[in-house]
Design a protein around this nucleic acid. Structure first.
Lengths: 215, 215, 215, 215
DNA sequence: GATGAATGAGGTTTCATTCAT
DNA sequence: TATGAATGAAACCTCATTCAT
């Protein structure tokens, strides 16, 4: 309003953002090869050439999309918050927030699948992404140590394997919901079913950590 | 006459098999959209028209590939064997064989990803696939019941969620090995690392089942 | 006719030849950047994709065109014939045949211009073209030596510079005929005018060789 | 007011000149079709729209470039100076200055090639260019006449053909230096090699004029 | 059954140019 | 005067598919 007669249709930042958002959806839903630059710009309601002007092509778009996706991931995890909590509480919080990340940003799963199809070639160029999970891993290590010291968790749990498990339990549920739903004869995308899954995952991780095998 | 006819048939079957195998690799590695019919036939060393002749196009090829993939899955799981075992032993066997399935047939992961991208539209046409996992799920239910009765497992474990967990723990490790390997700074495809993962998964599932929460 | 029901539209060699010929004209007349693949295939009356199928793209077409052009050049010069002739006769024959080459194959001039625009990058890959003029240069050296020995030509004439002159006199006349014709107010493409040019060139070269400067 | 107006004008002129110079290089190096308006303005470091503002598009730019090129040519040839000289001296001077023109302004060759590709359509609109060479041709005629009268040159030499020869000998050497250099296995752009060429051309033209064929 | 020739649809990209400020 | 935003046309090229032998 105040910014004089600035039309929406001539706002570069807005246009870029719109393109990026639609590219995120398109790549996530169709993969890199299946995505269409024209599909992206049609969704965004802008001229196709702007995608080339701002992102210099399909690959440039994909890289921009991946970078934004990892920024979302980074900002989602609140590492510092959980460091001070009781180990069990902290772990539960981490498990739930990981699952919620996939629910709130379902496009992330499709993007990660797309990126893995190409051997992660795009993100490997990014120094930022490389260190993205370092703080989170350190937090996990801290929780495990404290949990073991306080006798709440088993010791000798590999934090990397644990991290992968925390992600895998929700990731595959959502990424493979169509094939799984079909062979298991359930609608996995039903909100109640999703909540059930979250409770299940919390138990898988916590019970795994709390169990002390007989020796 | 007869011999030559047989020969032709045998060659035809061989050609079909070669095409199918190469199509499996291509679809798994590049997804449906990224796969090229010419890429498939070049790998197979046959003329591209044979792909049309035998499978009537790209989609026909993909369906044939998916059907073969599920046949492999079916033949891999030896449901009856585990029914008679001790619950813990049976569960461990199931977990390990699930992980080994993905290792022996890594193309399955790419194919399932491809199929999920399209909302599982192809396999939904197949009655056989729909009931593929029924015996396995029944076996799991049986194990859980016996385990609970014998006091070895917790009760009230949802077999479907458990089934998904058993798969997810290995599936995501392998399907996302490139992005995970990068952000975790580990080569997840190293044979020793893979063995380590298998041990981890066995513990996750068994400890989860064996833990009895207080109260 | 005899070759059974072989249709023209399904004769690969013929199609390739047609494309090549039309590509020659297009590249010669419009340069590499100005040429259109669709223009080439429209001229040839074939589907545009055949150009990609047979020559794998615009650059592949250009390279094929250049190679054919140099083959024409090679086959035009009859080096052995002139070696036995009287030096003056031999030189005259060489000059006239060089000029006639450009007249009979006017596309060569446009192609050479196009190739020079790109720093001769395409032909530099060809071993054949590199040695294409060696026999001709040797023939020129022989003629110059004999001419000098017989007292008909000056000595100390550089054969390379002479070779360039023999070409340049006709080449620029034809390649720049439009701008020259305009500023000189003559139609240089008139057949009589062309004949006049040939006579002029013969004199330029022969008189240059026959003149003995005083001292 | 006045000062600022002047300044703007001066900047405008400067900007125009910069664009024109860069356009000259771009068109000369890449031809009309290969040249990019954006390439020109990037070289000049100005906004692309200025090219449209000042020259109303690609073709307008090319015409302006050609006109400036011919102005350079015109200003280079000092016709009046050579009219008073000894015929042989005058001719040598003319030959050398023609060669030097191409050396000092190598872009002229590329521009003339570009213009000939299009049938000289652009310059044909210019009345100035049409008469550009008239004084020079008259000077040549004068020299030939005096040379014949003084017994130094043959008579019956066509001034137009001679003019073309004087240009051609240097023009093709430089315009085709890449292909010629390759097939002749010499670096024609070496300064010493260029000087050698100039001496050769002087001899070609002068000996051609001085030789009296036996009758 | 098998193959080379040919085609049509559509995707990515480039580029000259105009619009709006 | 100068600039960034936006557009339309058309170029190159890919690829699934069909045709004809």
């Amino acid at each position: 309003m105040q910014r004089s007669g600035q039309k929406q249709t001539r706002n570069a930042e807005l246009t870029k953002a719109k393109i990026l958002e639609c590219a995120t959806r398109e790549f996530s839903q169709k993969g890199f090869a299946g995505a269409r630059v024209s599909g992206i710009t049609k969704r965004a309601g802008v001229n196709i050439n702007l995608a080339y002007h701002y992102f210099s092509g399909k690959e440039g778009l994909f890289i921009a999309v991946m970078e934004r996706a990892y920024k979302i991931i980074r900002s989602h995890h609140n590492d510092t918050e959980i460091r001070g909590l009781d180990p069990i509480e902290a772990m539960e919080k981490l498990v739930r927030s990981t699952f919620q990340l996939f629910l709130k940003h379902p496009e992330i799963i499709g993007l990660l699948n797309a990126e893995n199809l190409h051997g992660a070639s795009h993100i490997k160029k990014s120094k930022e992404i490389e260190t993205l999970y370092h703080p989170l891993l350190e937090a996990i290590e801290g929780i495990l140590e404290r949990g073991a010291k306080e006798g709440k968790f088993r010791s000798n749990v590999n934090p990397v394997d644990l991290f992968i498990s925390i992600n895998a339990e929700g990731y595959m549920f959502l990424s493979n919901c169509h094939t799984l739903g079909f062979v298991l004869n359930e609608n996995l995308l039903d909100p109640d079913r999703i909540r059930q899954r979250e409770e299940h995952i919390v138990k898988v991780i916590l019970y795994f950590l709390q169990f002390h095998p007989p020796r």
